[in-house]
Write a protein that binds this DNA or RNA. Structure first.
Lengths: 220, 220, 220, 220
DNA sequence: CATGAATGAGCTTTCATTCAT
DNA sequence: AATGAATGAAAGCTCATTCAT
């Protein structure tokens, strides 16, 4: 979901610090250590000290590569979001909407599972640092817009014109997947993967069918 | 949604400090000042200093009434959640499921609108303070459980037995309303109230119909 | 010499922190401790820690009264400069120019002796902090301007019109007294007070006589 | 003015690093870069990083040539002061004292103008680093002593014996020229070169005449 | 009940200097 | 000779909380 603006990526470390293999190795260790620390201690709770300890480097070295802990998180989130963005860009083929739903929802949940700790950290940071809040809104907006455009296509094809705006519907559907994933994988609500996908596909499918006025998505 | 546990309410101010009218007035001013400060500065950004300044009392006075800023937020959230809990406890009558959906969804959005700044603060705090995280999970669990029980009743009445578990479906539906409300009223995503309710009722209704296998909720 | 501008005094502690006698006492101790620390350790060498240790208060207390070490120095310098400013404002009476010179030069040297360590600190700070550099230029400009105006009066009375501008002459004379005092009392150059005054008065007097074309200042 | 003591020059780079043409070039670039950096950023404000960037060499290379930034400044100041020392060593011929004054004062101002940024840096450094403070006092002492000896000669020739000691008078006169030059060329006080020389020669000349008791220096 | 001065632990960031390559 | 990654000490400032008045 989304992509950095120039401003947001402005705080990256100079490209040349990792020019040597040694530098690249240290940078990678700092990244991994940061992820680990964020997972264990949370965004707030993580001090630069916690990162460098896990990376096994000195305090000062951190600042050779990242301006501050926000810069490391930024780098981590940017990579993760690139993968999410792929999902959003898929078009739903009219003859296999169900398949499209399964792919986008399943893919989303899988990525979320992979990056759950990162998502948690990002959302923690987003509550307090404008930078990450804006990034979140931007990433979400992209997702909502792509879903809205697919929903629109389905409804238009069906000939229906009434009903709530596709953007609002898309916003509710995206909210559902996103927050469900958060509650499941970050807060620890207990669910089976198969049930989760079945539920989400059922709700999305039923909603699309209702909007279209006939069975666009096979639910049985 | 939810209710304090003994442990969480343990840090209330001594009952007697607010016994006098003067004490009660000071306490009320601190509450109002805290809400205002949280809204303006966020959970992190609010210092005890910011609260007492707005309340027009001295620094030390704060601690006469509340143990720390978490205690004020706790009190504010507790009151707000009592209202949310009412919504969750409604049973959906079989002959007017649509009406029930509209009441619970509409009521939720109205309460959320009233307390949007408080919700924001609470969620900020929940990301970093165990106390509020637990409170959030508890409140949410209550809601999910009540919705699951209503969904179950609808499905059972229809005679269907297959499909995803009611608890998982309920979790997705509750996630949808809750996060949509957050994105709309806290993050500032732009929506019309009527469209919002229409969308949410449509999705919930369609999902219930799909689960039940026939039109439990009239959608036209 | 000179007076604070609004901007320069902007960083003063809030007036009310020293409202109580206890607060006033602490503030005075911090001032005295700062002066002592500056004298011993120099501007650069003095850490807030050095000040609070000498004052016998905790680190945090310092920041209740002063924003940083520059703010204490500002306060100290402001008071000192008020005294210097008095000297500069004297008009030289035509019938006792020598007396006027002795008063202004002697007075300057006495004040400088009293505040030598403060002057040293101020000048150290002025080399690196714009705030104090500007303050110094301002204080000096006031002095030069007053001297120039007195020199002008003497020359005009004499009927002479040629010669270098009074402002330039005043600048050289003020430089002489000021830097001589610095080298003597700060750098430790060895001089007798009587010789110092005799030399300075001799040079100023001779210069005035030369400008006026006859003996305005009696030198024998 | 002045010359290094063994101790102060002890920290020179090993003689052989600049033995090769390449080494000599790098060293020269570091010198020039340092001067530039000091002028732009001040003594405090200049980091080794700022110097090597301007010189286009790596961080580590700096330490091949100079022990630290003080060592570069030391080298720069040493060269500059050699030129000042020439001025001080001139004897004033009895039949052209005015010419001697014009040469020494004019020469001083010209050198000061050429090296104003270096003087500023040196004086900044002198306020905080003993090494440069001592160097300054030494350079100044030499100047004062030479002037005192010339003043003495003039007075002795005149037959006068009373009056303040030549050393004290010389100290005031040297202070005047030096600090006037600083205020003019470093602090930016506005003066015309001709007026500056006229004023300074007038004051020195008048002082000498007063000491001698007759017109040693023609002032009209 | 109210006041507000005092405390001090805690985290961030900078940069001179070293040294393995 | 040159490189540049790594080091780590050092200092500033904030703010929740206490407690004497």
């Amino acid at each position: 979901m989304g992509r950095m603006t120039a401003d947001e990526s402005a705080h990256q470390a100079p490209a040349d610090v990792a020019a040597t293999p040694r530098g690249a190795r240290t940078m990678a260790r700092l990244r991994a250590a940061a992820l680990e620390a964020f997972a264990e201690l949370g965004w707030q709770g993580t001090r630069v000290e916690d990162i460098v300890q896990r990376a096994g480097v000195s305090h000062g070295t951190f600042y050779t590569y990242y301006e501050n802990k926000a810069a490391v998180l930024d780098a981590l989130v940017r990579d993760s979001q690139a993968d999410f963005a792929h999902l959003a860009s898929d078009r739903w083929e009219a003859d296999d909407v169900r398949g499209a739903l399964e792919r986008v929802i399943g893919g989303f949940l899988d990525l979320y599972a992979r990056d759950a700790m990162l998502m948690r950290t990002w959302l923690q940071a987003a509550r307090e640092e404008k930078r990450f809040g804006a990034l979140y809104r931007e990433a979400r907006a992209l997702f909502v817009e792509r879903v809205a455009s697919n929903v629109s296509a389905v409804v238009t094809a069906s000939g229906r014109t009434s009903g709530p705006p596709a953007r609002t519907v898309a916003s509710t559907l995206v909210s559902m997947v996103e927050h469900f994933a958060y509650c499941w994988m970050v807060l620890g609500e207990s669910h089976e993967r198969a049930d989760a996908i079945a539920s989400l596909v059922l709700v999305w499918g039923a909603a699309l069918n209702a909007l279209a006025g006939f069975e666009v998505v096979e639910l049985e």
